[in-house]
Measured scan of single mutants.
Amino acid sequence: DEFHFHWNGRDIRVRGDSEELRRLIEAIKRGELSEEEIERAIEILER
């Protein structure tokens, strides 16, 4: 699976399928994380 979302003017695409990944992306979409937490998560996910 590939998750695709927009954040902070960026087009983010992440491959993978796990419950943890889904929860993280939902939290990002709901605005539950700080900008710094989101940046760090995206860096890890894009590897």
Rank of each mutant, 00 (worst) to 15 (best):
E20R: 07
R47M: 14
I28G: 01
D1H: 11
R47V: 11
E43R: 08
G31T: 03
R30A: 12
E36P: 11
E39S: 10
R30P: 01
I44S: 09
E43Q: 12
N8W: 01
I38D: 00
E32G: 10
R15Y: 10
R22I: 12
E36V: 12
A27P: 00
S18M: 06
D1W: 05
R47G: 14
G31V: 03
D17S: 10
I38G: 01
N8E: 03
I25V: 13
H6L: 04
E43W: 05
I28E: 01
E43G: 07
E35F: 14
D1A: 09
E46H: 06
E26L: 15
R23V: 08
I38Y: 03
E39L: 10
F3G: 02
R15I: 11
E2Y: 10
R40N: 09
G9E: 02
G16E: 07
W7M: 02
I12Q: 00
A27R: 14
A41K: 07
I25Q: 04
G16T: 09
I25A: 06
F3K: 02
I12V: 06
F5L: 04
R15A: 11
D1K: 08
H4P: 01
E37N: 05
R10I: 03
E19N: 10
N8A: 06
E19P: 14
E35P: 13
R15F: 12
E2G: 08
I25C: 04
E19D: 09
I42S: 01
E32D: 12
L33F: 09
D1V: 11
R23D: 07
E20P: 13
I12A: 00
E19W: 15
K29F: 14
E2K: 03
E36F: 13
H4R: 06
L21H: 11
A27V: 07
I44Y: 14
H6F: 09
R30C: 05
W7K: 00
D17G: 07
S18L: 07
F5R: 00
I12H: 03
I12S: 00
E37F: 06
R22L: 11
L45G: 02
R22D: 03
E19V: 14
F5S: 00
F5D: 00
A41F: 08
G31E: 05
R30F: 12
A27H: 07
R40D: 07
R23A: 13
S18E: 05
L24M: 08
I38H: 02
D1L: 09
I38M: 13
R30T: 09
G9R: 01
A27N: 09
R15C: 02
L21C: 03
R40F: 08
E20I: 12
I12L: 04
E37R: 04
D17A: 08
E2N: 08
I28V: 05
I25M: 13
R10S: 02
D17L: 05
E46I: 14
A41Q: 09
E37Q: 12
D11H: 14
L33N: 03
A27K: 15
V14H: 02
I12C: 03
D1S: 07
F5W: 05
W7T: 00
E46C: 05
R23Y: 10
I28W: 13
E43D: 12
G9K: 02
R22Q: 08
E46N: 07
G9N: 05
H4Y: 07
R13C: 06
E32I: 12
D11P: 15
H4V: 14
